[in-house]
Design a protein around this nucleic acid. Structure first.
Length: 839
DNA sequence: AGCACGCCGACT
DNA sequence: GTCGGCGTGCTC
């Protein structure tokens, strides 16, 4: 496999290191060749961050993607200005991975780089000003005003000032005008200074000075001296109590956290005096942001089924790159993961476990932390930049051979992955749609593993149909795990007919009689209830009772969402907000009512229907804070909540025995979404939510409210018949040419002028249509949402033949066509977005 | 994406 | 006469 590791990876002699192709964060689809100055040649290589001049004015930081000796033909390469690292921040495999991503997902390698680097590693340059050495206030022909004088005076004592410094100095909001004026008057110069955004966490520690630490007699003398100073004595005693220097003198080296003194309520001034008298000293220690946890020796006990599954997985790994573990909820996938991770780590490989965002906050992380301790790094979107950089460095240094993380953790600097696990593989959140690269992390992870010659294990209770298809066509290994732990039973499903109840006047506050009865029953038995509402397109909005008009966003083609709590209308696409209007904009009527079942409304309805129950809501609003989610879960686990209403989130990792009833308020919203995956999604979501009901002894109850109780999907859900539904859905997909039978590429055009986009989209569509590959094209059509942020959207959907080189040819020609479009002045302002494998 | 260069209108 | 509008082309 030597070619995969790149021809430039091996150290080369200096003569061959003349030029570097640098990846820059600019939207130009190529690398830029710079000259490597002789004096830098020694300490430069692939993956080093460098500073380069780009264009006339800009200094950018980029990453070296390639080192070579071919001088560019058409221009003289500029020199690299500086190297920022003493070791490569990025390894050659990562650059290969970015390049693959750029090609596959039709984006620029710079965009891939941008997505990969935690912003703490992206150096930002900050504009600073300094005195112009050529300036002489005596002879200058331009008079300065008072504010300009202040700045010049400050520069007399300080070499440089940032813009913010100047703003603070003058107490004005925007300094640009003044700076510009000073530049024109030739009094100052503006320059760019690169600053590293990552700052290590430092702890101030206190220890005895050399003299007292090594000499017991000195210490005894000290005690006599301070006998009359009880405050100082306390400080010393505290130190000796925490750090028994007498017994273990070497402990003094690390000393004690300064906070320990403050927390013990000791006198800070005494501490200072002791330091002044050279008894104690202070020093700074760089510490990790992550707690040190040692791994447990606890043996994982595997059931017979799990052992068999592991043997099967390993068997498949002999010949295939990917295996799919199809294990229903509660079938014990976690233990299998743990065992496989252990083995991979023992063989010296790195392991990546990918999880969807919401699953990361749950007990699984704690569970793994217990087993793998501080060998495990966690990469989460709620982590700060500094924390992310620490995980990044931890992967390089070998501190974290195991990482569990979200989508973006596929970009961490692994150099020897042995195993990649994608749990909840079917989750749509693995796909990133904005900004580019619009990648599917599950698919990219498989590619990543392949680059490392590692294996990928996909796990799900309800696999994506793509993965299941790959399993059935033997591309992936397939390992079913279908017995519930402790033989817990499948829940009992009840399909509740919304329309029937409505006719009979049994529908109260959107709850069918069955739903209400089952909830009441659970409450009577002191059991817990989960109510699920799909978020997608199901937010409450206002409607005018007189003319039927709903307030819409000024910038987007959507109705505004009603947020009762803040008394606001909001646009979920552009963030536009306005106070709830008093009257209808269209007819002036004041009869504006809220419709639609947002989680807030449901919570309210439930309060009315079950006034005695304790009800809580779990959605984006209530869990925005870092630990908001966890807090709600704990409350629920402790039994302080009877009914929990939530979105998607509640389907993940909630594992509470007292939940016996799960209600799905409107299954139709998922099922009749205009998307070829709607059926698959409905099946997955309903099954996943249902999996939260009844574990162990008690059989759970699931109530699914729908207007179409006869839809064929329900029969399969009720019987847990994944495969039957899969087969039916596949026939449809094959008939209408949808994945996995074709490759989808969505091309959308956006522009503020509707006529311009429409014309551009037509033109583009025609050009694409002329590409000589086997394909079907749909469109161009107005987007599902016709306008977002004042940009009109038109979309073309391309269904490409999967066999042969249709994909490669199409993507190649697409690139040329986009360039051609850009060269056309009529269309150059139209933004074209390419989404490969759209969701 | 920025940013410079360049060629046309409304101002001191 | 100039300042500045933004069309267009380039960035190693």
């Amino acid at each position: 496999m030597e070619s995969l590791f790149g021809d430039t990876y091996e150290p080369q002699d200096e003569k061959s290191r003349l030029y570097a192709d640098v990846i820059l964060p600019v939207p130009i689809p190529k690398m830029f060749t710079y000259k490597i100055p002789r004096n830098l040649a020694e300490d430069i290589g692939i993956g080093f961050r460098v500073m380069v001049q780009f264009g006339q004015k800009k200094v950018l930081t980029g990453i070296i993607g390639k080192v070579h000796q071919k001088p560019p033909k058409e221009y003289e390469a500029k020199p690299i200005l500086d190297v920022l690292d003493t070791y490569a921040m990025v390894n050659p495999l990562q650059i290969k991975f970015w390049a693959w991503m750029a090609e596959y997902y039709c984006c620029h390698i710079g965009e891939a780089m941008n997505a990969a680097l935690p912003s703490g590693l992206k150096l930002s340059s900050e504009s600073k000003i300094q005195l112009n050495p050529a300036y002489d206030s005596e002879t200058s022909m331009y008079p300065l005003d008072s504010r300009e004088e202040v700045i010049l005076q400050a520069l007399a004592s300080q070499e440089e000032l940032s813009y913010e410094d100047c703003e603070r100095l003058l107490g004005v909001k925007s300094i640009h005008g003044i700076i510009k004026s000073l530049v024109i008057k030739e009094a100052i110069l503006v320059f760019e200074k690169v600053k590293d955004k990552y700052s290590p966490k430092v702890e101030t520690r206190i220890r005895l000075t050399q003299e007292y630490a090594t000499d017991k007699k000195a210490l005894e003398r000290l005690f006599q001296e301070i006998a009359s100073k009880p405050k100082q004595e306390e400080v010393i005693l505290k130190y000796l109590q925490e750090i028994p220097v007498y017994q273990k003198p070497e402990l003094n080296l690390k000393g004690l956290d300064k906070k320990a003194f403050t927390e013990a309520g000791l006198s800070m001034s005494s501490l200072k005096t002791l330091m002044k008298n050279n008894v104690l000293e202070e020093y700074k220690l760089i510490i990790s942001r992550f707690e040190e946890i040692s791994e447990s020796k606890e043996e994982i006990v595997l059931s017979e089924e799990q052992t068999t599954a592991i043997i099967q997985i390993k068997g498949y790994f002999e010949e295939k790159h990917v295996a799919l573990l199809h294990g229903i909820t509660g079938s014990g996938k976690t233990e299998i993961y743990i065992q496989l991770i252990k083995e991979a780590l023992e063989s010296g490989s790195q392991v990546l476990l990918l999880l969807p965002e919401i699953a990361l906050t749950t007990h699984l992380v704690g569970r793994l932390k217990k087993v793998f301790g501080s060998k495990m790094g966690v990469y989460h979107s709620k982590f700060s930049d500094n924390e992310r950089v620490e995980v990044w460095n931890g992967v390089i240094s070998g501190k974290f051979p195991l990482v569990i993380g979200v989508r973006s953790s596929i970009f961490l600097p692994f150099d020897s992955l042995g195993l990649v696990i994608v749990d909840e593989e079917h989750e749509a959140s693995f796909k990133q749609y904005d900004p580019a690269p619009r990648f599917q992390a599950r698919d990219a992870a498989i590619m990543l593993a392949w680059l490392h010659q590692a294996k990928t294990l996909l796990g799900s209770a309800t696999p994506s149909f793509e993965s299941f298809y790959n399993a059935r066509t033997k591309k992936y290994g397939y390992v079913p795990l279908d017995r519930r732990y402790g033989d817990a039973q499948l829940p009992a499903y009840h399909i509740a007919d919304i329309l029937k109840d409505k006719k009979k006047n049994l529908l109260k506050l959107e709850m069918t009689r069955l739903m209400r009865e089952k909830i009441q029953e659970a409450l009577n038995n002191q059991e817990q209830v989960l109510i699920f509402q799909n978020r997608r397109g199901y937010s409450p909005y206002l409607v005018c009772e007189d003319c039927g008009v709903s307030p819409e966003c000024e910038h987007c083609d959507v109705t505004l969402t009603y947020h009762q709590f803040a008394e606001e209308l909001r646009c979920h696409y552009c963030g536009f907000k306005e106070k709830v209007p008093k009257a209808c904009h269209a007819c002036g009527s004041v009869k504006l009512v809220a419709v639609g079942l947002g989680t807030e409304r449901i919570e309210e309805s439930l309060t009315l229907l079950f006034p005695e129950a304790r009800i809580a809501r779990m959605d984006l609003d209530t869990t925005r804070s870092k630990y908001g989610y966890q807090r709600l879960l704990e409350e629920f686990g402790a039994g302080n909540i009877d009914i929990l209403v939530g979105t998607q989130m509640i389907t993940k990792g909630l594992d509470f025995e007292k939940v016996t009833v799960v209600g799905i308020l409107d299954a139709d919203r998922i099922l009749f979404f205009p998307d070829f995956r709607a059926g698959e999604r409905a099946f997955q979501q309903i099954t996943q939510v249902a999996g939260r009901a009844g574990r162990r002894e008690k059989k759970g109850t699931v109530i699914v409210q729908t207007r179409q109780p006869d839809h064929h999907i329900y029969e399969k859900i009720v019987n847990g018949n994944y495969k039957k539904f899969y087969i039916e859905d596949m026939t449809e997909r094959q008939k209408f040419f949808y994945p996995p039978f074709v490759k989808l590429i969505k091309i959308s055009s956006r522009h503020k002028d509707k006529n311009v986009v429409e014309k551009a989209a037509r033109h583009l569509h025609n050009l694409l249509n002329d590409i000589q590959v086997k394909k079907i094209m749909l469109g161009p059509e107005k987007g599902l949402i016709g306008k977002i942020k004042n940009q009109y959207i038109f979309e073309t959907l391309v269904k490409l033949d999967k066999s042969g080189n249709a994909q490669a040819v199409f993507k190649h020609d697409l690139q040329l066509i986009l360039e051609e479009m850009y060269a056309n002045k009529e269309f150059r302002s139209v933004r074209v977005v390419v989404d490969v494998d759209p969701y």
